[in-house]
Design a protein around this nucleic acid. Sequence first.
DNA 1: GTGAAAGCGCTAACAT
DNA 2: ATGTTAGCGCTTTCAC
Lengths: 337, 337
Amino acid sequence: MVGIDEVARAAGVSTATVSRALSGKHNVSDSTRERVQEAAQRLGYVVSSSASSLASGRTRNIGVVIPHLDRWFFSTLLSGIAEQVTRAGYDITLYNVTPDREHRRQVFETFLRRQRVDGVIAVALELGEHESKTLLSLGMPVIAIGGPNELLPTLSIDDVGLGRLATEHLLAMGHLDIGHIGADPEFDIDFHIPSSRRHGFELALRTSGVEPRPELFEPGDFTIEGGFRAAKQLLGRPGASPTAIFAASDEMAIGAMLAARDLGYRVPEDLSIAGIDGHELGRFFDLTTVDQFPAGQGARAAATILHELEQSAGSVPDREELPYELVVRGSTARIGA
Amino acid sequence: MVGIDEVARAAGVSTATVSRALSGKHNVSDSTRERVQEAAQRLGYVVSSSASSLASGRTRNIGVVIPHLDRWFFSTLLSGIAEQVTRAGYDITLYNVTPDREHRRQVFETFLRRQRVDGVIAVALELGEHESKTLLSLGMPVIAIGGPNELLPTLSIDDVGLGRLATEHLLAMGHLDIGHIGADPEFDIDFHIPSSRRHGFELALRTSGVEPRPELFEPGDFTIEGGFRAAKQLLGRPGASPTAIFAASDEMAIGAMLAARDLGYRVPEDLSIAGIDGHELGRFFDLTTVDQFPAGQGARAAATILHELEQSAGSVPDREELPYELVVRGSTARIGA
DNA sequence: GTGAAAGCGCTAACAT
DNA sequence: ATGTTAGCGCTTTCAC
């Protein structure tokens, strides 16, 4: 492994100058810089990140704490983060927290504190007070995407608003008997997003003078299969007979579309269906949805963290709201259309 | 940030002993180790990874080079890697290579050479000779998952065999007019897996004395939507009339099922459909597939790398074959059934 | 603009 | 079993 002194020797300068030249500092003459770069290039020199980090205190590495890697929403979001971060020449270190409490504790208490990263993005994690404080005490920029968090700078999405918007769309189409496929209460212990969406749903209904009916709710697990099962329950239940279904995720909405078709419902003639997310399959299934731009969420979080990192000055990031947008496609229509 | 000497002072030992005690070396008495651990715990001490790496030459970090994060196959595989690696107390650093050649070059020439990782897993990358040699010259364990590679230790899957197995299943069901949805030749420039599958398909056909017909092939882009479009083409083409379709991925196979249904075909009565991958949706769509256990591929690669890392001795990993398995479900049946 | 030299916070020989 | 000490390969004052 060729080191900095070899480059220094080759370029006829000191190691200090090599360091400055290569890291783009300004106190280097153009000619020297060129000579150094040429030498480094020729020798195949690349700085050792551990040595550089130890000396400088900066790692050029962002930690991403994420609960799932194999779900569309999360991997899309991660993809958005990766693109930004990479573009800035930073690496990403992944901390995949699982339901295993002990492992999760380790991530917060040990892994993140090893000084391996300059900043942390915590994705869609319901962070307890203790965990939030641990993150804060890291002494580095931290940003949480998702659920509201009193303690941390947050990029949050208005899940109540998301649920309300989808529901208002259905109401505007004349639907009054609207079914909802949402979170299993059990699922919700550690993850409040779904119940916020349900809350938005009920809010919209009540605002229109419609009382939510318990028999029009069915829990699902946020997969296509779960949506399929939930929709069959909902549609099959005597006395329920919704004219529209709002599912708390696009994957469940797609499952619901397939279930409806299976049962002989035409979508949207007999049944309107709307989801939430902006899933890539939504276009294919012609699904009306409220897009929350997951890749954009990741990109934005990354940009924010990177900005703080470059600012050396402790900027004030705080709470920002993420955008969302109703995308009306063919799965919803006026009642009786 | 509390350092090792603070812990040493608190525990009344030298820093060397703290280092040994905390990293589980054997030359420490139980009582000392306990005292050290207690002190570290109490002071909230966590070793600095850069300092530790610089001194020891080990980072406890695995680099994963991967072309997509937001495709099911890749994120599932990554998930498999993450689980193993995390369990062993290693971190993962992600290198998401994009089609951008310049960026890709950077990953190989710079990022991976920064000594940030102890080993590298390269996922489903068609690595050129130069890139392969760069990886080799890193002086650390490297393993490639996917396409065969002459130069690198590889966990490879027999894509020809995969294609043949799926096709043989259809042949065994009595089908002779089998359509194939495979890779766009353009897609294939940098990624030979799909054409290997096609090769297996044609091999199986010829072995059974059936000559492949060009009009029974249609390219697809490995998405549900792409499979849908391809199947419509295939099924609509005058004179083609396949009784079965083999798609080179489950996502395309699912698209094909939806297309078939759309066109009024009953699956499997009028048309059998088989895919490849073992996609999670396969169960839901009752799709016959050749499962290649992507999460298992990741786990196995990770285990191999970790094993080499612990072995200090330069073991001989080399070429290993990954398992695959035909999973017969409801989307295929005997012809005329 | 450039160089000398003092660390950054650990680990690993080598002693004891 | 434990302590002493010399680095690991850089970055960053501080001089010039």
